[in-house]
Design a binder for these strands. Structure first.
Length: 439
DNA sequence: TCTGGGGTCCTAGGACCC
DNA sequence: TCTGGGGTCCTAGGACCC
């Protein structure tokens, strides 16, 4: 045993070692942290508008509730089995995610935050063997944040993903699984049991194509002929194949590349027919997108608005979109609101039942590259910046919509349905959990 | 009837991810 | 009755140029 350990140490010294930390059933686990009565009880978390089931606890999975299933189809099963139901609580999940990522950041700076519940990190130069590192990370996150995670370790990101899945599904691993020291034939044994669609980067369509060409398992893909791959697959998929062979092609991205567009779109809670309500929704989404834009220190050159009706409505289907080029790149909400307003006026057709509206800010440039316009005074510019900084500051301190533009409406009858929302226990003073001492 | 070849740029749509 | 939202990248095809 000890010789394996020391070998692992040497391995870690010579070659890059990737770890993928992935939170188990993240949204469901977050709900559990502040509500221990949910332990061992099945949980599902719903998408926006309470439409689909987007997260399930292990107990809910065991009941046969599939990922992405429409909520209404499973109401009966959910009621019968006393499944706890939640609307997505992004303030809570986002905050929990930040806490977990900061723990990982303390462990190593070589960290890529891949999504709200996943991060890659490099374990090069790890002081002890890599599996022990994995356990340390897992235990620390569980103790400090209450979230269970799985750790997969391998010589490429794609293999680390596979190792992570294995850790998650097999309780004997204790939540940590490393492929670093696994002999090639043992790895192949594992890959033979995985359908090719389970590998990172191969989706439904490609899986169907590959299967038609007798590539059924991840193992088959790994050992497909180079000639065939070059002829039939894209460069991206070629990289996946090489990664499966343990050759790293997808590097760690420590600093996320700047966003190319900022999208804010949402289905309405109820069908919208009035122009006024469309204007309000557009204003609300634009304000939100503008805030994101400022947070990343950027300006937008164009604003794109799209609206669509539902598919099966009385007057039929209508979908349209419009791009507005701003007079100058901007992050100033009132300016963006004006553009959105004009677009909605042009797009609106009376009589339709609208289902969704979206705002896309694009042509994103860093604020430092801004060319001052000929017609504006520096004082004007300072005043605008100060105003936006103040609004953002107040909203970040006292809650997202403390200050908002009147054009975004006050009744907001179009807003999304969240019937099962838990309190924002970690980000709102007024929603802190109350602990009552028992007598 | 016959009608070059090669390059760039842009856009829409598809595929994938979480 | 009721089926999410926010991203990225690639590719094919058209427009245009010489």
């Amino acid at each position: 045993m000890s010789s394996i350990r020391s070998e692992e140490k040497n391995y870690a010294k010579g070659k890059k070692v990737y770890a993928l930390i992935d939170c188990n059933n993240f949204y469901a686990s977050c709900e559990r942290v502040f509500n221990p009565s949910l332990n061992n009880r099945p949980i599902v978390v719903l998408s926006n508008n309470d439409g689909c089931i987007v997260a399930r606890s292990n107990e809910a999975k065991a009941l046969g509730i599939p990922m992405g299933a429409p909520f209404f189809k499973y109401r009966g099963l959910i009621k019968k089995n006393n499944v706890a139901v939640f609307s997505s609580n992004y303030p809570l999940y986002g905050d929990m995610s930040e806490r977990i990522m900061s723990i990982l950041g303390q462990f190593t700076p070589e960290l890529e935050i891949y999504s709200i519940d996943e991060a890659f990190l490099l374990l090069n130069g790890a002081r002890s063997d890599v599996r022990a590192c994995g356990h340390t990370l897992r235990d620390t996150i569980k103790r400090w944040c209450g979230i269970p995670v799985s750790v997969g370790i391998a010589s490429s990101k794609t293999l680390a993903k596979i190792a992570n899945e294995h850790a998650k599904k097999n309780f004997t691993t204790g939540g940590v699984f490393s492929l670093c020291m696994t002999p090639e034939d043992k790895i192949d044994l594992l890959l033979r049991a995985l359908p090719v669609g389970e590998v990172w980067g191969i989706g439904r369509k490609r899986e169907a194509f590959l299967k038609k060409n007798a590539i059924e398992s991840v193992y088959d893909l790994k050992h497909a002929s180079e000639f065939w791959i070059k002829k039939n697959l894209s460069l991206k998929e070629m990289r996946t194949v090489l990664e499966l062979r343990g050759i790293e092609c997808i590097a760690l991205e420590e600093t996320p590349p700047p966003r190319k567009g900022i999208l804010c779109s949402r289905s309405f809670g109820h069908r919208v027919t009035s122009k006024q309500q469309l204007h309000e929704a557009a204003a609300a989404y634009t304000s939100q997108a503008a805030e994101k834009l400022r947070r990343q220190g950027a300006l937008a050159t164009t604003l794109f608005v799209f609206i669509t009706t539902g598919y099966h409505t009385k007057k039929g289907y209508y979908s349209n979109a419009l791009t507005k080029t701003l007079p100058a790149p901007s992050d100033y909400t009132p300016e963006l609101l004006r553009a959105a307003d004009r677009a909605v006026t042009e797009l609106f057709r009376p009589g339709y039942e609208y289902q969704k509206l979206g705002i896309l800010l694009s042509g994103i440039i860093p604020k430092s590259c801004r060319m001052p316009s000929f017609f504006e005074s520096p004082q004007d510019c300072d005043r605008r910046n100060a105003l936006m900084t103040t609004v953002d500051g107040i909203n970040s301190r006292f809650g997202k919509t403390t200050l908002r533009f009147a054009s975004a409406g006050t009744e907001r009858s179009w807003k999304m349905i969240q019937s099962y929302l838990s309190p924002a226990v970690t980000t709102r003073w007024d929603q802190l959990p109350v602990v009552r001492a028992s007598a």
